[in-house]
């Protein structure tokens, strides 16, 4: 186990240290809201940020497991490829933006545009998500135990959204869809991986109506 203290080390030093090993457990002390902590990790290491992180924490994560004990700022786990990012507090906007894979868990709430353009990442949020979450979401799952803000799933492709609480409004081409057995199993599995407790049957499923991104011969005159 290695401790790295941000009061004496720069973010560049800390990230360089995290990039040099193929396995270890790290604790980042006194993060103080610094940006770009634990970014670009590419090994099966475990990193715990002891406090609040700034922007882009755990961005581009591959293989590593990153935990933030406090809150995280804009773009947490953006472009995550694999591995796991777990935030005990809240996160700001654009959570896991463009994420290709892996699991992102937020115990608190995420603000606007959570899962924007997600491309395969699985996201589980214990609290609420803000407006325009899953905007242009292409693949992956967004599970929300609380409420969702306005324009949920606007211009969505083939990602799946499951919300337990209230939805303030759906975006263009996002509709409620029937919940089948395999969807319940997906929610159950994601909740277990996130270590969050909820009944899959309490969730509502949302996805694409497929009217926006599919070419329709009836619309030929529009082009």
């Amino acid at each position: 186990m290695t401790q790295l203290d941000l009061t004496t080390l720069s973010v560049r030093d800390v990230n360089a240290a995290l990039h040099q090993v193929s396995q270890d457990t790290f604790h980042l002390l006194n993060p103080g809201g610094a940006h770009a902590l634990a970014c670009g990790l590419n090994a099966e290491i475990s990193v715990t940020v002891e406090g609040h992180a700034g922007y882009y924490c755990a961005g581009m994560n591959k293989h590593a497991s990153v935990t933030v004990t406090g809150n995280a700022g804009t773009g947490c786990a953006e472009n995550i490829m694999s591995g796991e990012v777990h935030v005990r507090g809240d996160v700001s906007q654009s959570l896991a933006a463009s994420g290709h894979g892996g699991l992102v868990v937020v115990e608190g709430s995420a603000s606007a545009r959570a899962g924007i353009s997600m491309k395969g990442v699985d996201i589980v949020v214990g609290g609420d998500v803000g407006h325009m979450s899953a905007f242009m979401a292409q693949a992956g799952h967004l599970v929300v135990l609380g409420d969702a803000g306005t324009d949920l799933g606007d211009s969505i492709y083939e990602a799946e959204i499951y919300v337990r609480g209230a939805v303030a409004g759906l975006g263009a081409d996002c509709i409620e869809k029937p919940m089948e057995t395999d969807h319940l199993a997906t929610i159950d599995q994601l909740l277990k991986r996130a270590n969050l407790d909820a009944n899959p049957k309490d969730f509502t499923r949302f996805g694409s109506a497929r009217r926006l991104y599919h070419f329709s011969i009836d619309h030929m005159d529009e082009y």
Binding site: G32, G33, A34, G54, Y55, G73, S92, Q93, A112, H131
Partner: peptide, 26 residues
């Protein structure tokens, strides 16, 4: 739309707001 950042922190002694948490961390 809220695309400009903001964070608020409150204790018994003060309320602080900033564009980013690091300004409040002190």
């Amino acid at each position: 739309i809220a695309c400009k950042p903001a964070v608020i922190a409150e204790t018994e002694d003060w309320v602080a707001m900033s564009s980013e948490f690091r300004a409040i961390a002190q």
